[in-house]
Design a protein around this nucleic acid. Sequence first.
DNA 1: CGGGATCACTGGTCTGACCAGTGTTGGTTG
DNA 2: CAACCAACACTGGTCAGACCAGTGATCCCG
Lengths: 251, 251
Amino acid sequence: MAISREVSYRLERLILDGGLAPEQKIPSERQLAARLRVSRSVIREALHELQGRGVIETRHGKGSFVSTMVPGSDDLREQGPLMHLFEGHPRTLYDLLEVREQLEGQAAFLAAKRATSLDHHRITKAFRALEETDPLSNARPDHGFHQAIVEASHNPILVHVLNSLKNMMLMTVQASVANLNPRAEKRKKIVQQHRQLYEAIMAGRPASAQKVAMAHVRFVSESMRDMENEGSELIRIPVMPEVSDNQHPIG
Amino acid sequence: MAISREVSYRLERLILDGGLAPEQKIPSERQLAARLRVSRSVIREALHELQGRGVIETRHGKGSFVSTMVPGSDDLREQGPLMHLFEGHPRTLYDLLEVREQLEGQAAFLAAKRATSLDHHRITKAFRALEETDPLSNARPDHGFHQAIVEASHNPILVHVLNSLKNMMLMTVQASVANLNPRAEKRKKIVQQHRQLYEAIMAGRPASAQKVAMAHVRFVSESMRDMENEGSELIRIPVMPEVSDNQHPIG
DNA sequence: CGGGATCACTGGTCTGACCAGTGTTGGTTG
DNA sequence: CAACCAACACTGGTCAGACCAGTGATCCCG
């Protein structure tokens, strides 16, 4: 068995068994090397592996620290081992929106085709809540509206898949920011799109509903891209995953 | 920014974009070091990080390989709660195919638009294998063909979602039976659709490719429905999602 | 023809050096 | 005395080159 594997294994067990608490500092690489009687290379490789697993974080000049969100089992990754794709891969967000565009369109299509009167009632309710709310303060009505439409498609698979994609999206920086900081003129267009979508579904026009829904997602996607390109000072989108500010260990 | 981080980032992006297929061999550490103009240590640390993430696997004396379980299979367990949808609800299969129709169409569209020459090569290879095989005896070439197309879309999210859907499909009885027992006349039509799909993608006609792919899935779905209605006795086959072993790296 | 030695790969480990951030410490200076 | 800054002692990050250890093809000999 590879030594570096043994080392990473031992360290991980030590951490997860509670021997080391979150934010606690791990002995320096040189100390570990001496203690475990292996070269520093092996230690570094083992640490990188744990880093990949999200068990520890390393800061240049400071040391390695047990990751805060790790205790027990990685609950974030449990929701989808795919989640790590987003860490530092903003492009994946657009891949996701690309798929979502298609599926939201289908959902709208099916909703316009299959919605029952109960669905109509729910969608209407969600739509009114959406119009009465300031999108700046709360993004939930927006979710509620789309959710009602998706559910009106009466396709549980579609509901499930779109839910997964939405959860993934919420994990990204841009997505959240774009939800909270839409430009005035864009917000207007979005409101208009929502209205068109609402009417198409209520009127039972599947093709139209699909078209509008797809245009909507595409518009949102392009808006995000614009924000990204403008390089607004508000949001610095890290091309690479950067370590958060220096949180002092318990010391 | 740490160089090893950049390296692991670049490699991961390369793999997830579909530039490197599962089971495919990654260049040797010394080659990568020379190519990226960094020391071998940096390469090894980056590879260990990807290893920690489960993106690659390394075998002493052989090399490093893209992990097979990366694209899908991660939420096989996660989808446990969803699996109950199938129990006694064959309708869900058609819900699934409904979604798949849309996504396979998108995959074909994007593949026609974005496929590189390497993708063309892979698709062609898969297509030839498909034509030379008796579909009665083996359904795998069919999977390989569609898989190659999906991967040519260069959208990792799409790859992942379609993989999940496919795995779910394989859990159903009808789906497998339909794969194994197509009627002669239907088989002919399917072959024709495959050929059309192949040509549209190779010729770079996205709209056409999308249309054909969607028609294909819809046709398969309707064929299943027919079989079901005919009340043909279903053969119980223990179906487990199989790991695709038809991916041979370009030697 | 069969089989074992050889050789050219692959990853695994070690060494020791130097670069680059971080924080402390102690001395100089206003 | 207080403020500041330079030196120092840490930390991780990178490099070079060497050697060990699996793997598999190839070649040569029995």
